[in-house]
Design a protein around this nucleic acid. Structure first.
Lengths: 345, 345
DNA sequence: CTGAAAGCGCTTACAG
DNA sequence: CTGAAAGCGCTTACAG
């Protein structure tokens, strides 16, 4: 292991500039007045020696890491590019560092946190990267935390930022019912324990109920928000000769929609003539599907930005919003039966 | 600013376990034998007090940050999700931390590096995030560096990992010429100073030359690898009544292809009947375009993984590969005129 | 306004 | 095998 090659330190600067290290420190941090002539001498020596203060030493002395951490379940999702963009912007605005890590759910020998109070001042925790228990643990240790796309369990007070799932889904399904006269809408249910899918389901049901359409358990596919899984479940559903009739599908998210499209096409079912299909997310591929997918726009970058913002509130001692709900909007394309490209908020 | 709430330290553990801090440290790092009874006592106290060593103190004492940095020009590109996934996997395998930052080219008042020898042991630098001069500076200061999708200027020896652009493009264009009998191929030129686009252009020309097709400067569009820009340049080209005839387009990358598709469609030009179109990257949308885009698969995650790998070589004192070139492969879809979905390596 | 000194929480020769 | 002590490179009361 190569250790860092001996770099020049604040002591070198002090010696060369003929001042004390305390003065150099004050000049560096601009937190106390330093006379102009000393300042000049210090600056000159610093330029000459190309001095950059060691972050670790400074962090240790100040007991502040100037770093926040982002924990995600994995990075294999384009979703995270947008999320990161939002977070990174906010972090750099505050002159903080950003540590990112995935959390491989490690069952054996106790989980080793890659991120925590030992290397960050606070953390952004994305849904499904930590168990409720682990979150509670970090919280107990006073580590500033904000949750993304997930709310805290019990009545722990941890700020959370997420998107409006229920209202958007309700609007989407209502659109299917009122504009396209669909009544037998298939629900592709996402992971049981995923909050987004939970609220989407609630919105789905509410739309049905407010139109006096009974919720039919047989019109539910226990797939998941993964393309392949959705494809297979949909196929199994179609191949079951006893399957109930349906005239529309809410796929839960756009990625699942791709699988659903494939299964439908294989069975010669036309979209939207035979069945309307709608998704959620407005992922990059949504407008390019055939037909273009009607879906819900989730402001992912904004979610990242505001999550970081709440964390900085916590770090600065100001009051964060306990829950930040980003509004979503529907984008009407043609998979629902519409002919235009439109947006309803 | 809230400072870290006084956490428990190695001294607390030592006191409670009735050993010296040196012994606790040795037990923690497992780098010296500690007798079983002391070990037990220490472990017990640590569990009880929920002790986690402060990373900064440890880093300062060891003069090693256990952290690498990734610098990218921006995060607004799905490309980075895959890149990050590869990097993160390797980093966590080595039990390192990963700091990510974007480099906003800041002209005024001298650039402030968000990442450098002050907070990392080494850096991964993505193309277009730092100038050659800045890279040289970091390198002079002995900071271990590896470049991604970019080679070092001059004859500085910095490992670089990138993809095979030239050969893949040559193969792609050759396919257009030999299989689809295209002779008038339009080249959408990417940014002048971007290495990827440079080599793609070279490959493009080589394919032409080896088939005795002269390179025609009039069959070049000075667009860029951005959807909107490509769209506008293509449109301008088509609206110029003097534009030369063409029967194929190499769009430079998939994102640009989307813009090209749009412009072509507006002018009633059919793909691939009237013109073949090919891209580069195999982005997520490529298979969903109408018609599906023939393009080149770039192993982005693999690039990230191996870049991190080279950096760890540097950090461990073993010899890194000075240049790692990842092979790319062509995926034939129907935009070129093929009817099947095939791959040639 | 400036300096000497203690301290941040660890690691690691140096003795024993 | 274990401990006392110095040191990592900074910051910040405390004096003056």
């Amino acid at each position: 292991m190569t250790k860092q090659t001996s770099s020049i330190t604040i002591r070198d600067i002090a010696r060369e500039a003929e001042v004390s290290v305390a003065t150099v420190s004050r000049y560096l941090n601009q937190n106390a007045f330093v006379s102009p002539d000393l300042s000049d001498r210090i600056q000159e020596v610093m330029d000459q020696l190309d001095y950059i203060p060691q972050a670790t030493a400074r962090q240790l002395a100040m007991r502040k890491k100037n770093t926040i951490g982002l924990l995600v379940p994995n990075m294999h999702n384009n979703f995270f590019a947008a999320l990161l963009a939002g977070i990174e912007g906010e972090v750099s605005k505050h002159n903080y560092n950003l540590l990112v890590a995935t959390c491989r759910m490690n069952q054996k020998s106790g989980y080793q946190f890659p991120l925590g109070s030992h290397n960050t001042d606070g953390m952004l925790v994305f849904a499904d990267s930590l168990s409720d228990k682990q979150i509670a643990q970090l919280h107990e240790r006073q580590l500033p935390l904000v949750l993304i796309h997930k709310s805290p369990s019990g009545n722990i007070k941890i700020p959370t930022v997420t998107i409006e799932n229920k209202a958007a889904t309700k609007k989407l399904i209502t659109h299917l019912i009122e504009e396209h006269h669909r009544k037998h809408i298939l629900l592709v249910r996402g992971s049981e324990y995923q909050e987004d899918s939970y609220w989407r389901e609630v919105g789905f049901k509410e739309a049905l109920f407010s139109h006096n359409i009974p919720f039919d358990e047989n019109l539910v596919i226990r797939g998941s928000f993964e393309r392949e899984v959705a494809y297979k479940s949909m196929k199994a559903f179609l191949e079951d000769p006893t399957h109930p009739k349906f005239d529309a599908i809410f796929t839960g998210d756009d990625d699942a929609a791709v699988g659903i499209y494939d299964a439908l096409k294989e069975h010669g079912i036309r979209i939207p003539e035979d069945v309307s299909v709608v998704g959620f997310d407005d992922s990059q591929i949504a407008p390019f599907l055939t037909p273009p997918l009607t879906t819900v726009i989730a402001p992912t970058e904004e979610v990242g930005r505001s999550a970081a913002e709440q964390l900085f509130c916590l770090l600065n001692g100001s009051d964060p919003a306990l829950v930040t709900l980003h509004t979503t909007e529907i984008v009407l394309r043609s998979s629902c039966g519409c002919s235009m490209n439109n947006t309803i908020t």
